[in-house]
């Protein structure tokens, strides 16, 4: 008779602390994406500086949806920070709550952006302003969507019990990306909605 012994000791997943190679990988991703957005926003200002006639051509962009959008993303950054603090204290439930709330805030952000897009009187190909508007906000939306995917994966991993107070580098990396999206949105918001008002 053969007896099979299964060891109860489970090897830990992921590295300790958050300075894993993934962390540096995320920093390089942020570097490239930040460069992309820097160039996009520079193109906006450059084209604005050469515009003949009124700028923005369709009047001041409305703030009624943009301000709630901004508050949603900033709040999402706070909930993610709060969730990460939870796993720092070995509390995966708090992290899961943080992930769900941030994801919901992100989803509502995408919905509001969609509403704003639907309400615009111009299309992607109308003129330079419209194509800048859809390109920049569109790129940002794609980044939010990728962020949502990331949060979902983190949620599943947390539910499977992959993380504890020491080993949760994946969470820290995801939170870093989520903060990056918020900061990029602040720059986009400033460029498209605030700068024309201070022109």
């Amino acid at each position: 008779m053969v007896e099979l012994g299964v060891s109860r000791t489970v090897l830990p997943v992921g590295s300790k602390a958050h300075h894993a190679s993934g962390w540096w990988g995320m920093l390089t991703v942020i570097a490239t994406e930040a460069t992309l957005f820097a160039y996009l926003l520079f193109s906006y200002f450059y084209i604005a500086s050469h515009a003949i006639g009124a700028w923005p051509p369709y009047g001041m962009p409305k703030l009624s949806l943009a301000i709630p959008c901004t508050m949603l993303l900033v709040a999402g950054s706070f909930t993610m920070w709060w969730g990460e603090r939870g796993i720092d204290r070995d509390n995966p439930v708090r992290l899961m709550i943080g992930l769900v709330v941030s994801a919901v805030l992100g989803l509502v952000f995408i919905a509001l952006e969609g509403l704003e897009w639907a309400g615009e009187p111009f299309h992607l190909t109308s003129d330079a302003y419209s194509s800048l508007y859809f390109t920049v906000t569109g790129f940002h939306l794609v980044h939010v969507a990728v962020g949502l995917l990331l949060l979902m994966v983190l949620f599943v991993w947390t539910a499977l019990g992959y993380f504890d107070a020491q080993r949760h580098s994946a969470v820290s990396i995801g939170v870093l990306y989520w903060h990056f999206i918020t900061i990029v949105w602040l720059a986009v918001f400033f460029t498209f909605y605030i700068a024309p008002r201070l022109g």
Partner: peptide
């Protein structure tokens, strides 16, 4: 780089701000 971009913007602009 931000400083340089703003300088470029002012240099290359088509009209005075």
């Amino acid at each position: 780089v931000q400083n340089g971009l703003l300088g470029a913007l002012l240099t290359l602009a088509g009209h005075p701000f």
